[in-house]
């Protein structure tokens, strides 16, 4: 979306610049009020509601570089083991991940 915005508006905005206001309580307040106004406009004063929970992954918590390094290290270990003739199915799958991984 940000790329499209940059092309259309000719304004180059890094994604971090957009993410920073997420921490601003005033931004939260503005979004919250917008939410309340939309609900009011839709006439949802009384509601038949339904609720549930879902989970999202926070992949950014796992640093890409260290993750890739981890995979490489694992593959190295497996290769060393193969040289010693200790090959197993589990270790083969580790090599497979290394070959086709990120």
């Amino acid at each position: 979306m940000l790329t499209v915005f940059s092309i259309v508006s000719d304004i180059d905005v890094p994604c971090r610049a957009v993410e920073r206001p997420y921490s601003d309580p005033e931004v939260f307040l503005a979004i919250h009020n917008l939410h309340a106004l939309i609900l009011r406009k839709k006439g949802a004063r009384e509601s038949d509601a339904t609720g549930d929970g879902t989970s999202y992954s926070l992949t950014i918590k796992r640093n890409y570089e260290s993750y890739a390094q981890e995979l490489k290290d694992k593959a190295k270990e497996n290769r060393n083991d193969d040289d010693k003739g200790k090959r197993s199915a589990k270790k083969c799958s580790g090599l497979f991940v290394q070959a086709y991984g990120p």
Binding site: L39, R45, D48, G51
Partner: peptide, 12 residues
Amino acid sequence: TVDMKLKSVRLD
């Protein structure tokens, strides 16, 4: 915080 009255709610 939202001005809303729940008539009914379904939960798992």
